[in-house]
Nucleic acid binder design. Structure first.
Lengths: 326, 326
DNA sequence: GTTGCTTACGATTTGCGTAACGATA
DNA sequence: TATCGTTACGCAAATCGTAAGCAAC
């Protein structure tokens, strides 16, 4: 049993039981993988895959067990490599971030720009995904960090680190009646107009729906979208009153929109970073988190993610105070 | 970076930074290990060991970090091998048990005999150790199972599984006054005689000391020993009144001794099996635990040790009911 | 001088890729 | 017939053990 064999095994599973495709991923030829798999199965003494003829179609039950431990093992191998890269202050590296549109579009760019100034040779992959997809992608190992917002409890699926708080804002065209009301709209007011908001708000268990329900009201979601820009465009078109994250609007970017405070009964949100447990972080990953949330301590961060300490995070500041530039 | 390199690294550390000695452990020559270490250090890009001249004297701080992850990685490699061995119903294997004298001498032998009937080709290593040493040895990876008793909370350092309950008994020579008192001695009576008991009872925080203290009394420990046989011999010699585990005396083995119930204020004990977390158990290990505690469910056992379920153990039965043979 | 790590060297093994083959749908 | 996995073969690289070299106590 060798590391290479185990890596091939995992690659074949990840490629959907297609050795040819897995070989491409690993930058090797197909016969090489085929042989490695054979050797691994010989070493263990039984088949890891169910086969139809020669094609692999699924894992055997035993193979499934082996896979679980193989993933952990490969994770530790990756950790050791990360330790080494940090130790050598290696400039190259990859950082895969999966997050929602608002973070990717409005919050991350300045942080990533700063990160790339400090780490010009890293390659950063930013993958926007639907709310529900974000944590699933992290869990599948397709990302190193997930950034996700919630108004409720901390997200599961890894080590959750609170970065900053933010509130929703009401957005209307400058000439809209609400813009001239002189005061922030009430929940009752919002219940009477068509709303345009995030896709996730349409779920029955969303914090928005709960806020209306608590007041004996119901929101009328005229339209939902993942993309804050789409929402703003719809607001401009008069489709409805926008309700979105304060990060998504700026006086400079949206001179034609009026931004009003949301009713206080609509709860604030916290944006969390979620990291896989027991994963050694590259230095630039820690740097990114510190850019997003300067209140975090590098050592605490590392200790908690390593599982050496219980999480006890500083209270996340308001996003508004964090980013006076925007 | 290869599995072999990491194994060598760990072996060198375990051998006390002596490559020659580590080579013997791994069944390889010293130059081979030396080269593997060099390759690992080259692959990582920095030194894992501090050196005085050519000799290794300690780990570097970075080496210490790498070691931690290496141990986890090698643990998973071992788990995969264990899965394979179970899957193939492999008859060979090793089972290292570390426990206290009483368990090793009075409880384990029949269980081990049964185990060897089922698994004649396994090699079982039974290592008696001082109370305090047992868990330390398990933690250092020198054993696969620790068996340890406590009257208080469950032992830490791994997955603790309650096997059975037992009580202490008072042991005196047949012609001793207490043997003819007609009833079990009280705590007050025991406070007035010299006691002979386990070494661990002499600790100020022992459950025995606490029981006496709660009654406003103090025990007079005339002698302590780890070894129940030694204690019984001392009792025969008239050194004092014995206080030991009920498992350690039997009518057949000790016809010259009278065994009396201990006062109820002396709390009962539970014997626990402690297993390293997230370790795949060989089938014979599960069998051993089932011999010691038939109330356990094989699947629960595996699930909890694997970390897939929270421990929720059946109440441990009394040892007396478990082993009607003795 | 003894202990212990490193280097050198030759024999063996392992592993890769190319290419041909076989099976499946 | 196209796709995908296995087998065959030749070459390159890695690894082991023996033996010799070197540093420290």
């Amino acid at each position: 049993m060798t590391l290479v064999q185990l890596r091939c095994f995992a690659a074949i599973v990840d490629a959907g039981f297609n050795i040819t495709q897995a070989a491409a991923q690993v930058h090797a030829t197909q016969p090489a993988l085929s042989k490695q798999l054979k050797q691994l199965e010989d070493a263990l003494g039984y088949r890891l895959f169910l086969r139809h003829g020669r094609s692999l179609v699924d894992l055997t039950p035993a193979g499934r067990q082996v896979l679980e431990h193989t993933r952990r093992l490969l994770g530790e191998a990756r950790n050791i490599r990360a330790l080494a890269a940090n130790q050598r202050a290696e400039a190259e590296g990859e950082l895969r971030i999966v997050t929602t549109h608002t973070q990717a579009r409005f919050v991350l760019p300045p942080a990533l720009a700063a990160l790339r100034r400090a780490w010009p040779r890293t390659s950063i992959h930013l993958e926007p995904a639907a709310d529900a997809e974000v944590l699933a992608r992290l869990d599948r190992g397709e990302a190193d960090v997930a950034l996700i917002s919630s108004s409720g409890s901390e997200p599961a699926g890894g080590v959750a680190i609170p970065l900053y708080r933010w509130r929703r804002v009401v957005v209307v065209p400058r000439d809209h009646a609400l813009a001239h009301a002189g005061r922030a709209p009430t929940l009752a007011t919002l219940a009477e107009v068509p709303l345009v908001s995030y896709e996730s708000s349409s779920r029955a268990d969303s914090s928005l729906a709960a806020a209306f329900a608590d007041a004996g009201l119901a929101a009328h979601l005229a339209m939902t979208a993942r993309d804050a820009d789409v929402i703003k465009t719809c607001v401009r078109e008069g489709i409805g009153v926008g309700l979105l994250a304060e990060m998504a609007v700026g006086a400079l970017a949206d001179p034609d929109l009026a931004v009003l405070e949301a009713p206080t009964s609509i709860p604030g949100c916290i944006t969390w970073a979620v990291l896989p447990r027991e994963r050694v972080l590259r230095d630039y990953t820690v740097d990114l988190l510190r850019h997003l949330a300067p209140q975090l301590d590098r050592h605490d961060l590392r200790r908690v993610v390593a599982g050496h300490a219980e999480p006890r995070w500083p209270a996340p500041p308001d996003w508004r105070d964090l980013s006076p530039v925007l």
